[in-house]
C-alpha cells in the first residue's frame, strides 16, 4: 500500500465533494438570493419549483464534506469548526430557515411572505457565511498542538467579508444562469436582464480576491509570480478572461444552456486558482495535507466505500436531473 498516497486521493475526493456542493447548492442558494427581485409571485413559484426536487440532494454534498473531512482530515475538521464557531452557526441557522421554506411556503396562505423572507435571507446568509469561512480558511488560523488556539472572532476581517460578498455574487450568478436554463417567458427575460450585472460583480470579486490573496501570504505570491511558475499558471487567469467574454456573448445571444456552463467554468477556474495558492496546506500557513490526515486504515476503509458508492450516487443523481429535465412553467405539477 506504500505506493498509493491515500491522503492525496482523499484530498481529491474532498475537493470534488466541496466543488459539487458549491456548484449544486450554489445554484439553488442563488435562486434564493434572487428571489425578492423576481417579477411577481408566479415567477417565484416557478423559480422555487426549478430547485425543489433537487435541493435536498444538493445539500447532502455539504454533509458529505463535513463527514468526509472528519473521516479523512480530522485535524482540519477539529480546527476549522471551532475557529468558525459563529459563521458556522449562522450558516446552519440560515440553511434551516431556507430549507423549511421549501415545504412551508406552499402550505402557507397569509404567512407566505414570511417564508419568502425566510428563503431569501436564509439563502443569502448561508452563501455569505460560506464565503466568510472560505476567506478565513485562506487567511489561516492560530494553532497550538494541533488544536485551535485563537479567539472566537479571529475570522472577522475585511478579506473574509470580501470573500463572503464575493460568494453571494457568485451564487447569484450561477442561480441566474440556472433560471435562464430552466424557465421560459417573463421569468427568463428577467433573468437575462440582471445576468450582466451579476457577471460584472462576480468577475470583480474574483479579481479582488485573486490580487488580495498573494498580498496576504508571501508564500502564495512566491508560488504565482516566481519563474517559471508564472508561465505554468498563466493559463488560469487567461482562460478565465476568455470565458468571461464567452459568457457575455452567450447572454447577448440569449443562449439557453451556455450561460450555466460558463458559470460552471468560472467556478472550476476559481477553484483551480485557489488550489494552486493553497497547495499543499490544508490549514494556513503551515499544516499540510499529510499532517492533518487520519490513520491510513481509516482512509482505506472509507475509500473502498466511497469508490463503490460515488458512481452509484452520481448515477441516480443524474437520473433525477434527467427526470426533472426541461423547462419549468406555472403548470408544472407538484405534490402540494
Amino acid at each position: 500500500m506504500e505506493t498509493i498516497d491515500l491522503t492525496l486521493i482523499w484530498a481529491l475526493i474532498i475537493a470534488l465533494g466541496v466543488f459539487m456542493y458549491v456548484l449544486m447548492d450554489g445554484f439553488d442558494l442563488g435562486v434564493g438570493i434572487l428571489f425578492p427581485y423576481a417579477p411577481g409571485d408566479t415567477a417565484r413559484d416557478i423559480m422555487m419549483n426549478t430547485v425543489a426536487p433537487v435541493w435536498d440532494g444538493n445539500e447532502t454534498w455539504l454533509v458529505l464534506g463535513g463527514a468526509g473531512l472528519l473521516g479523512a482530515f480530522p485535524m482540519v475538521y477539529s480546527i476549522l469548526l471551532p475557529a468558525m464557531y459563529l459563521p458556522v452557526l449562522v450558516m446552519l441557522v440560515a440553511l434551516i430557515f431556507r430549507g423549511v421554506a421549501f415545504e412551508f411556503r406552499f402550505k402557507a396562505k397569509q404567512s407566505k411572505w414570511l417564508w419568502d423572507v425566510s428563503f431569501t435571507v436564509g439563502s443569502t446568509l448561508a452563501a455569505f457565511s460560506q464565503g466568510v469561512i472560505l476567506g478565513a480558511f485562506i487567511q489561516g488560523f492560530e494553532v497550538v498542538d494541533g488544536a485551535y488556539a485563537g479567539g472566537m472572532f479571529d475570522w472577522l476581517s475585511p478579506f473574509s467579508i470580501m470573500t463572503g460578498l464575493g460568494l453571494v455574487a457568485g451564487y447569484a450568478l450561477v442561480g441566474c444562469a440556472w433560471i435562464i436554463m430552466k424557465t421560459t417567458g417573463d421569468v427568463r427575460e428577467w433573468a437575462y436582464s440582471i445576468a450582466h450585472r451579476l457577471l460584472y460583480v462576480t468577475l470583480f470579486a474574483i479579481v479582488v480576491v485573486s490580487v488580495w490573496t498573494p498580498l496576504m501570504h508571501d508564500a502564495i505570491a512566491q508560488r504565482w509570480f516566481s519563474l517559471p511558475n508564472f508561465f505554468y499558471f498563466m493559463p488560469v487567469p487567461v482562460i478565465t478572461a476568455g470565458l468571461a467574454v464567452v459568457f457575455y456573448r452567450a447572454l447577448l445571444q440569449r443562449r439557453d444552456y451556455l450561460p450555466f456552463f460558463c458559470a460552471l467554468g468560472l467556478y472550476i477556474l476559481s477553484y483551480t486558482g485557489l488550489a494552486i495558492s493553497l497547495w499543499p496546506h490544508v490549514i494556513q500557513p503551515d499544516i499540510t495535507l499529510w499532517e492533518a490526515a487520519s490513520a491510513p486504515e481509516s482512509q482505506l476503509f472509507l475509500l473502498l466505500g466511497v469508490l463503490f458508492t460515488l458512481p452509484i450516487i452520481l448515477g441516480y443523481t443524474t437520473w433525477t436531473y434527467w427526470v426533472f429535465r426541461g423547462k419549468v412553467t406555472e403548470h408544472s405539477a407538484g405534490y402540494h
Binding site: L64, G71, G305, V306, I313
Partner: peptide, 28 residues
C-alpha cells in the same frame, strides 16, 4: 475521527444521498 469519520461518511454515501435524491422523485 478514525472511527466516527468513516462511519458517518458511510451514512452519507449509502443513505443520505439515497433518501434525498429519491425523495425528489417521490414528491415531484
Amino acid at each position: 475521527a478514525n472511527f466516527m469519520g468513516p462511519v458517518l461518511s458511510y451514512e452519507v454515501v449509502t443513505a443520505f444521498f439515497l433518501e434525498a435524491t429519491f425523495l425528489g422523485v417521490l414528491l415531484f
